[in-house]
Design a protein around this nucleic acid. Structure first.
Lengths: 233, 233
DNA sequence: ACCTGAACACCGTTCAAGT
DNA sequence: ACCTGAACACCGTTCAAGT
């Protein structure tokens, strides 16, 4: 009976499965062929090569993302809800997200959320470059947190040195803190906490002036010249 | 003349150089051997294998990090300065940072900054789990931003679809925003902006209660059960 | 103690040849 | 139109053999 004809869809599905489980590094054309019960070279006829196979998976991930609708009463709350909704969608496919990212397509993946965010930021009364900054900051926050998180899970028990290094200086002074830092991180809780703080800070304009903070010439900012007009035009 | 005797240091230095320039993927044992003018197998004698070679590079990166001293007048400013200092140190070796991260050693790399941060967070009047949250949030922020940034640079001209997709709906309503989102990102500025906002939000406790925001049952938080006591003990 | 080439098992990919 | 095996150039790694 040979085989009921190999299709491109079949190849993509099998590849997506392998990637979802073990990441892209472990996906070899030969293993994929074995999984599908065909010759390696058949795959090449359907998808070109390994690189465009992964491209197709990434493209598919982006397409499947769908629209994001904000929820909540306050502008800040609605912005946070967009961040959480996006995160929830991406969290199931951490490897895919990393791949999207590696291909420099983060912006495109982020578009549905961006649409929603712009609307909410406008509702919060911001316009122009300031509004754009908020959108970008949230984008970096969501994606960054996801990337950090992905590899954090891979190293569950952090190296034992930590607790010892902490024990010495901090343990007796603030045992609750030392204990918390030694424990595993609840990434979901940390994310919500961070986004809320970030959004609150952005909307209240806490990040505007060089009001406080060590961003003067004496500070560690030193070499990098960041001194342009904060919001030109 | 043959060769003035291959040393482990020499191997590590050459490897670090290749990684710094083109990332770890392009580092092959054979290319490294060619670079050093020795047989491939000689390298194995000095460093074991490719994996432990990369491990050694990572270890070295962490060790070279050094202490971080806060600068600034306000607690928030000093916390921001720690984030910026850490970022500046890591920014020159983005590949190395990613490698540290992949090996799950982020925590250890972050330790010098953590020491400084704990001190400043205490100075800001926070203790226990709340203090730990601030430390963690800043850690994720710095590393996450760096990771996002690393791959962002690799895709300088974002796909053209962006401006078009934006043009339609937003362009006439808020042209300044559309223009900014279409432009390349000034990652340094975005980082400073974000950290300031995050720290401000964290210190003012903006992320505490379910006060506003859509984190109620009606929100998109839906499935994940995040409902524990916010700060047990 | 240090270096070497040959050899093995694994890659991705091409190509001529089949049906 | 679709599938195949052989072959090529590249990997990381091992090992017996050199000095």
């Amino acid at each position: 009976m040979a085989r009921p004809a190999l299709t491109r869809e079949e190849v993509l599905a099998a590849a997506a499965d392998l990637v979802r489980q073990h990441g892209p590094q472990t996906l070899t054309m030969r293993k994929l062929a074995a999984e599908l019960g065909t010759a390696v070279t058949s795959i090449y006829w359907h998808v070109g090569n390994r690189e465009s196979l992964l491209d197709a998976l990434v493209e598919r991930t982006i397409a499947e993302l769908g629209e994001i609708r904000p929820v909540g009463r306050t502008p800040a709350g609605r912005i946070v809800s967009v961040a959480r909704a996006l995160r929830r969608r991406l969290r199931d496919h951490p490897h895919l997200v990393a791949m999207v990212h590696e291909r420099g397509l983060t912006e495109r993946m982020f578009l549905p959320a961006q649409q929603a965010l712009v609307h909410e930021v406008h509702a919060a009364g911001l316009r122009g470059a300031r509004a754009a900054d908020v959108v970008r900051a949230v984008q970096f926050q969501v994606v960054g947190h996801l990337l950090v998180e992905r590899n954090h899970e891979r190293a569950p028990a952090q190296h034992p040195g930590e607790e010892e290094l902490w024990g010495a200086r901090t343990a007796e002074e603030d045992p609750a803190l030392a204990r918390t830092l030694a424990r595993a991180i609840d990434t979901e809780k940390l994310f919500v906490l961070s986004v809320k703080a970030l959004v609150a800070g952005l909307l209240t304009g806490a990040s505007d002036g060089a009001s406080d903070s060590g961003s003067g010439p004496g500070a560690d900012s030193g070499d990098r010249t960041v001194s342009r007009a904060p919001y030109p035009q």
